[in-house]
């Protein structure tokens, strides 16, 4: 049970995950990800959807050596907190980079990658990941 991935759960947030759509507080202008209907900073309910910038820099990162079920094939992989150009923070995997090359402050941009493949017969989960800027 703990390793299964629910299709409806994936499906309902796919657009926000594909396009990095977060929340913007119309009261205090705070931008955040993932989207929700209350502001994490001021508590306002005046939230609208906001397409977030695709570029940012690495705040903190970690190389995962102890993956959950379903992520074995990708190990070791990098999980990072990225601060986007508008200040919103995103939790993300970093891809196209050797773990040793990752540095705080490194500039990264969004791409879409396979998050996991559910066995031989299950569906394929795609989502945003960040990578060093191509050019």
């Amino acid at each position: 049970m703990y390793s299964w991935l629910s299709v409806p759960s994936y499906w309902r947030s796919r657009s926000r995950r594909y396009m990095l759509i977060g929340g913007k507080c119309n009261n205090c202008d705070y931008k955040f990800f993932p989207f929700r209907r209350t502001c994490p900073r001021c508590g306002s309910h005046l939230i609208s959807e906001e397409k977030l910038p695709r570029k940012g820099r690495v705040l903190d990162y970690t190389v995962v050596h102890n993956p959950p079920r379903g992520y074995e094939y990708y190990t070791p992989y990098v999980i990072a907190l990225v601060e986007l150009e508008n200040g919103a923070k995103v939790l993300t995997q970093l891809t196209d980079v050797d773990p040793e090359e990752v540095k705080e402050g490194m500039e990264v941009e969004m791409s879409l990658r396979i998050l996991r493949v559910c066995g031989e017969s299950g569906f394929i989960a795609y989502g945003y990941k960040f990578r060093p800027v191509v050019k």
Binding site: Y2, S3, L5, S9, Y10, S13, R17, P34, T62, V64, N66, P67, P68, R69, G70, Y71, E72, Y74, Y77, I79, L91, T92, Q93, L115, R116, A125, G127
Partner: peptide, 25 residues
């Protein structure tokens, strides 16, 4: 892997767990 999945069920599954994040990360 299963233990990692079990204890990582405490982080948000739909938005964090799906990225391969764990409670340890």
């Amino acid at each position: 892997e299963d233990i990692s999945s079990v204890v990582s069920s405490s982080i948000n599954r739909e938005h964090e767990g799906i990225l391969g994040a764990t409670v340890y990360s």
